[in-house]
Simulated scan of single mutants.
Amino acid sequence: MGRKSKNWCSRPVHRRDVKLWNFCKKWSDLAIKHINAAGGVLGTELEVVTQDDACDSAKAAQVAEEMIAENVIAVIGHICSNSTEAALPSYLGANIPVISAASTNPNLTNDGKYPNFFRTISHDASQALLQVEFAVKALGIKKAAVIFDQGNCGKEMAGLVRDGLEQNGVKVLVFEPIESGTESYSELIGKLRKAKVNSSNGTAVFFSGYHPEAAKFVAEARKERNNAFFISGDGVKDPSFIENAGKYAMGYYVSAPFDLSKVANARSVTEQYKAEFGSDPTIHSLRSYAAVQVFAKALEKSGTSDPSALIDTLKEVEMLDSAIGEFSFSESGDILGAGDALYQVRPTPTGLQFVPAY
């Protein structure tokens, strides 16, 4: 093909555990390995160029320019929404398709600025609606606090949740940002206590951010006898959250893409991954694999490595047997056919686990 296909998962150093980068990269690499073992695409093996944007916007913009100079034909990434947003203008200018398995900020697709952007995960608006529906209908929430990481993803999700709660008659008594890496949340927990958002009777704390902060926050809050329901998005659905929060993770709710354990191809690919790397997938793992699959199918269907043709073809491709089941993309680049679900941390024979709850 004369040009390189790029497999890229950005490694977050502050807001997400390094494990996420490792999982994403390994799954993308595994997909490339399987495709090449089957003969590649259009008779040519796919070549991987891996880069690290550290979930930093300035770094992401710089790396995007480096990838364009590498003459890549597609990007599998980025992970963090702020990095994706910073890099997209460069990729758009070069007309290079970008497929993310983790960037969930609705603005990346809602305003139509980036017709070259696609994602194999639903965006925050979908999860926010589900969180609000569950809180109001299933938990009977009347008062709430919305806490958020000040990053691109956290703030967007928090605003959507707050608006949805207020539209459903829930009083949002605390709307507060936090800094990543905060040593203590005692002042914030005091505000929750003063607002009386600390009881299991009709109150909930919505945390919009990533699992390292969520684990620390809920553990400290529970120690201070805050018994409100805790609800977060997919940034918290990671094994490390339970590992770090320990017993205080019990009962925590998260919204995330639906359970793939019943998808035959997902089970098959998961077993291959476990045999090769000896670990279980995260929610973004199979979606990284699927991002490579849909790119390869678009490349094969278009019959050319021309990026413009790939972008057009990605909007037409229907995946019937991917690692996440059946899906396609909307005109805006959002995934179709992959809904969200609510999970709760519950005890299982193998310890605390995220279990489907709604």
Rank of each mutant, 00 (worst) to 15 (best):
206 F>C: 04
127 Q>P: 02
247 K>I: 08
356 P>H: 11
204 A>I: 03
110 N>K: 14
134 F>S: 01
20 L>D: 13
182 T>M: 03
9 C>E: 08
218 V>L: 03
40 G>Q: 12
36 N>R: 10
330 S>N: 09
202 G>L: 03
102 A>V: 06
145 A>F: 07
34 H>L: 15
333 G>K: 06
334 D>W: 01
112 G>Q: 07
279 S>W: 05
280 D>C: 06
231 I>A: 00
127 Q>F: 13
234 D>T: 00
4 K>R: 13
310 L>V: 14
2 G>A: 14
176 E>T: 01
197 V>R: 05
39 G>W: 08
209 G>I: 00
248 Y>F: 11
200 S>C: 01
267 R>Q: 14
321 D>E: 15
182 T>I: 01
36 N>W: 10
36 N>K: 10
204 A>P: 04
55 C>P: 05
310 L>C: 07
293 Q>A: 06
248 Y>P: 00
105 N>R: 02
104 T>H: 09
310 L>F: 05
85 E>N: 05
188 L>M: 15
221 A>K: 02
33 K>S: 06
73 I>D: 05
164 G>T: 05
48 V>A: 14
138 A>H: 09
203 T>W: 10
195 A>H: 13
252 Y>G: 00
295 F>L: 15
87 A>E: 07
337 G>M: 14
99 I>C: 04
244 N>G: 07
211 H>Q: 11
263 V>A: 04
323 A>H: 09
158 A>G: 07
274 K>E: 13
321 D>T: 03
61 A>S: 13
265 N>V: 12
346 R>L: 15
168 N>G: 04
163 D>L: 03
20 L>S: 12
254 V>Q: 02
6 K>L: 13
243 E>S: 06
118 F>M: 06
353 Q>H: 12
239 P>N: 08
315 K>Y: 06
69 A>W: 05
35 I>K: 12
346 R>G: 06
296 A>P: 04
290 A>W: 13
137 K>N: 15
295 F>V: 00
195 A>S: 11
256 A>Q: 03
164 G>I: 07
327 F>D: 03
38 A>C: 03
176 E>M: 04
292 V>C: 07
217 F>L: 15
30 L>P: 01
258 F>C: 05
301 K>L: 15
263 V>I: 15
166 E>F: 14
205 V>F: 01
97 P>H: 02
323 A>I: 01
264 A>F: 11
142 K>Q: 13
297 K>Q: 14
89 P>K: 02
41 V>F: 09
13 V>A: 06
205 V>M: 03
136 V>L: 04
206 F>L: 05
254 V>L: 08
305 S>N: 11
189 I>Y: 02
305 S>R: 09
251 G>Q: 02
71 N>T: 02
277 F>R: 00
66 E>S: 03
33 K>P: 00
301 K>M: 14
233 G>I: 01
200 S>D: 12
91 Y>S: 02
273 Y>H: 10
47 E>I: 14
114 Y>L: 05
313 T>G: 06
52 D>V: 06
141 I>S: 00
